[in-house]
C-alpha cells in the first residue's frame, strides 16, 4: 500500500479531530454539581443582617470556624465582624481583630485609645459571602471549580480547584482565602450542608440577638424575605455590579 506523506498527515489530522469530537460533547459532572443543576428552582437563598442588633460578641465567627473546620487560631475566616467607631472629626476607626472571633473587649483600636467624648457613633457590621447574583469569582475561575447552584449559593469544588487565586483577586468583598489545610479557595457557602437539610447556618443559629437571618427570597411568606421586601435595606459595594444577596439593615456610609 502506498501512502504519501501528505495523505498520511491529512488522515492523521482528520482522525484526531474525529476522535476528539465525541469526547468533547460530554461534560463530566461531580455528584454535587449534578445535584445542584437539578436542584429545586423555587429556592433562592438570601441573608439579612440587622447591624442595629449586632453587639460584636463574635459567637457567629466562633460557630462558623468550628462548623466549617477553618483553623481556629489563624486570622482567616469565612465570616467576620467589623467594628466602626466614628469620631467628631469625621474619621472612621475600623478594626476586626482575629476576625472579631473573641468579641471586642478592648476599647483600643490598633493600640489607639479613643476618647469616649470624641465618639459620635459606633457600631458593628458582620460580613460574609454575598452569594452574588452575578458572581465575579465564578466568572474568573479558569477551571470552573467554583460555581453557582440553582438556589443561588456559590460553592467551591475542593477536588478541582487549582489554587490560582484569581477568584480571591476578583472578589470585591475580600471574602475568599486559601484554606490552610486543603490549599484551595475557601469561602462562606451559607453552610450549604446545613441549609439544604432545612437547618439554619451555624452563624444564624449562634447569634444570640437575631442580627443574622437566612431565608428563601423566592418565598414571599418567609419572614426574612418579607423584611427585605418591605423595609429599607442596602447591600455592600453595589457599584461593582455583582448584585449581592446579603441585605443589611442600618448600613452606614462609613461601612467599607
Amino acid at each position: 500500500m502506498s501512502c504519501s506523506r501528505r495523505k498520511f498527515l491529512k488522515t492523521t489530522l482528520s482522525g484526531t479531530v474525529a476522535a476528539s469530537l465525541p469526547l468533547s460533547a460530554f461534560r463530566f459532572l461531580s455528584p454535587a454539581e449534578a445535584k445542584a443543576a437539578t436542584g429545586t428552582p423555587n429556592t433562592r437563598w438570601g441573608f439579612l443582617v440587622d447591624t442595629r442588633k449586632c453587639v460584636g460578641c463574635g459567637f457567629c465567627v466562633k460557630a462558623c470556624k468550628k462548623e466549617n473546620e477553618v483553623p481556629y487560631d489563624l486570622p482567616v475566616s469565612r465570616t467576620w465582624v467589623e467594628r466602626y467607631v466614628i469620631t467628631k472629626n469625621g474619621k472612621a476607626h475600623i478594626d476586626s481583630p482575629m476576625a472579631g472571633r473573641d468579641g471586642f473587649t478592648s476599647k483600643k483600636i490598633r493600640d489607639e485609645e479613643i476618647d469616649a467624648k470624641d465618639v459620635t457613633k459606633a457600631f458593628f457590621v458582620p460580613k460574609l459571602c454575598n452569594q452574588c447574583e452575578n458572581p465575579a469569582c465564578v466568572q474568573v475561575c479558569p477551571v470552573g471549580a467554583t460555581y453557582q447552584t440553582s438556589d443561588g449559593v456559590v460553592l467551591v469544588d475542593r477536588s478541582w480547584c487549582i489554587g490560582c487565586g484569581y477568584c480571591i483577586m476578583a472578589c470585591p468583598y475580600g471574602v475568599r482565602f486559601f484554606h490552610p489545610k486543603y490549599k484551595v479557595a475557601e469561602k462562606c457557602n451559607f453552610c450549604y450542608h446545613r441549609i439544604s437539610k432545612g437547618m439554619k447556618t451555624a452563624c444564624v443559629q449562634a447569634c444570640p440577638f437575631g442580627a443574622r437571618q437566612i431565608g428563601n427570597l423566592k418565598n414571599f411568606d418567609d419572614p426574612v424575605t418579607r423584611i427585605i421586601m418591605t423595609e429599607r435595606v442596602a447591600v455592600l459595594k453595589e457599584e461593582y455590579g455583582t448584585k449581592p444577596q446579603v441585605f443589611y439593615i442600618g448600613l452606614d456610609s462609613n461601612v467599607r
Binding site: 479558569p142 477551571v143 480547584c161 487549582i162 484569581y166
Partner: peptide, 27 residues
C-alpha cells in the same frame, strides 16, 4: 504559573475543563 499554584499538579485542569468566561482559561 506552576510555581505559584497552590495545587500545581492540577495545573493541567485548565486544559481539561477550560471555563471560558475566565481570562486565564484561554491561556
Amino acid at each position: 504559573l506552576q510555581l505559584h499554584l497552590q495545587q500545581p499538579l492540577r495545573g493541567m485542569n485548565v486544559m481539561f475543563t477550560p471555563h471560558f468566561t475566565s481570562a486565564i482559561a484561554a491561556f
